[in-house]
Design a binder for these strands. Sequence first.
DNA 1: GACTTTTGCCAAAGCGTTTTACCAGCGGCT
DNA 2: AGCCGCTGGTAAAACGCTTTGGCAAAAGTC
Lengths: 360, 360
Amino acid sequence: MRPPRPTIQDVAAQAGVSVTTVSHVLNRVQTARVKEATRIRVEEVAARLGYAPNGLARGLRRKRSQTLALLSDRIATTPFAGSIILGAQEKAAELGWVLMLYSTGDDAEVEQREIDTLLQHQVDGVLYATWYHREVSVPPKLARVPVVLLDCTSGDPGLPSVVPDEYGSGYNATLELIRHGHRRIGFVTNVDDVPATWGRLRGYRDALHRAEIRYQEHLVAADVSETPGGYRTGLQLLTGPDRPTAIFCYNDRMAMGVYRAAREVGLEIPKDLSVVSIDNQEIIAEGLYPGLTTMALPHYEMGAWAVQHLIARLESAGGDQAQRAERAVLPCPIVRRGSIAAPPLEPDRAASPGADGGGS
Amino acid sequence: MRPPRPTIQDVAAQAGVSVTTVSHVLNRVQTARVKEATRIRVEEVAARLGYAPNGLARGLRRKRSQTLALLSDRIATTPFAGSIILGAQEKAAELGWVLMLYSTGDDAEVEQREIDTLLQHQVDGVLYATWYHREVSVPPKLARVPVVLLDCTSGDPGLPSVVPDEYGSGYNATLELIRHGHRRIGFVTNVDDVPATWGRLRGYRDALHRAEIRYQEHLVAADVSETPGGYRTGLQLLTGPDRPTAIFCYNDRMAMGVYRAAREVGLEIPKDLSVVSIDNQEIIAEGLYPGLTTMALPHYEMGAWAVQHLIARLESAGGDQAQRAERAVLPCPIVRRGSIAAPPLEPDRAASPGADGGGS
DNA sequence: GACTTTTGCCAAAGCGTTTTACCAGCGGCT
DNA sequence: AGCCGCTGGTAAAACGCTTTGGCAAAAGTC
């Protein structure tokens, strides 16, 4: 019912050559000399038998498993993880590698065990991933194998890493609002002490600054970065004095809360209020009405980048030369939907130059 | 910088015994006789060296890699995939197995290639998964290895499978509405010809029937199962004659559309309209206001079930005896949030209850 | 024709395990 | 004394592959 897979021996026997020769031709060994006719014969037999080398045996001999581990604190509890995994998986497959999955559930003890098994399975390298951008310290046991950091960074300068451009996303999101003529721009942010919070705020401030708009404390409000938090802060901004004509939200979930707040206050998006945010969680961004304009976090790209660079390291001269580790910061492209318009006409602040546009 | 991992030879040498003995004690071979003192010594040395067997070598010898493949049409393009993967991964880890990831992107050619490499890596079994419940035919090449179907079924009676209880979820969702006193219950469904569509509809009808409520065609509307579709059908149901007091939605995205429709019509949820749906996509169900009561699809559980049964098969006597394949249908538990209440008081069905409004 | 070189191929070692088969020593029994 | 059976181990074969080092035969070279 389940015929055994053919081995290299079978191919050799049927082709009337030694296993050595089969190995040579199938691996296209340049230094080996084999007559054209023989080569073809071997290849035919191999194809006919559907032969594929046993990865275990090959890995054992070559001391390389052609396998990568994706070790993550929480796999897939967030929709993002999916994209990271997908990006990593596809790039790995493209390059002829395979991905193994490990998740620690944020438990140090589990992490130890996982590392043990992953080492035991002879993975050639590991992607150390977190489900949101933060600083980590990789467990010492992992020193035995090349590592690249995915969506996180560490103090160790020897470790390559890839993270999203938090600053740039904040900057460009704000800029998009400015381009549409907004000058009173609120920022609904979160309260966690993470790179995204700092970076997006800096981006927001710089964009304002560059447009010669004064940063005003009362236009930024922080809460937990979920829908209810967005609702609360949104309400706060929209009912306070000096109501903004646009709000930049820390993420799509908070934007969802802001939508609700706007509705309750009787503001229509985008006519009365423009909204932009970060994440591009399609389920929200497309489901909201009007569609939410938002900066896409490059999860897929980060996954692919990490794999690509890990493999590059592995394949270059032994892999552990002390080459300077690259630290990538990937851009967050904007995805335009319908949540941004020009600000409503109003007798806006007499003194300052009205929305002159600034072209683009 | 990267010390080689200790081998069984190292342990044997340091413990002053043969590798055979080391293998015996580390694998707890019952039939082997080894003196207590020796056993302890070996174990100590192994621990001190941090020895762990080389999985490749072991796999080669044992003809078993202790590795499972998760082969999926589209990994992780949906948030669900995450849960499936997580469930599978955690169960596998718990049982001492490892998961490898393959995704085909719904491309038959890619699938062939993936199967080749997966076979090459000597996975012991594969989980054939789809990202929504449907009928599939597994590629013949996979006949070489035990398979279990995840979130899909096939004509082949030899293949175990696990899918969600579509019928039950429809039945119970409707029942929940009935329990709250609703008798005019709309159904916003989708247009795809898949088991979920059939099953949920049957569940809906049976629940009505059991409560002696007549099934009425004009209370069910179908559209594509996204938010806009939900909006359109929701609007249709809510503005038509004989407006329902509750709507059962095919999924959370459609429910999101129904929320919008209700809002536009001036209906408040749950006071004027109760809503229940299926999926429990937390990002929506929790983000909506009020929170959406919805039936959770047991993705995590399905992943775990599939792994557990696949491993059970593998570990029972050779694995491919023609034992009757189990076909599991997992329940979808209800997750109650705030979208269901008793129907608004109204002079219900005298002859034909006009749109009495019910306030807002 | 006696060499060197090139061509074409193969034997065997080794990768790190598990597993089968065997063996030496010893105490107890007849 | 001879035999048996138990205890505590070990040697060696295998798993399927890659790779090193060779070695005949064919082809050049002078």
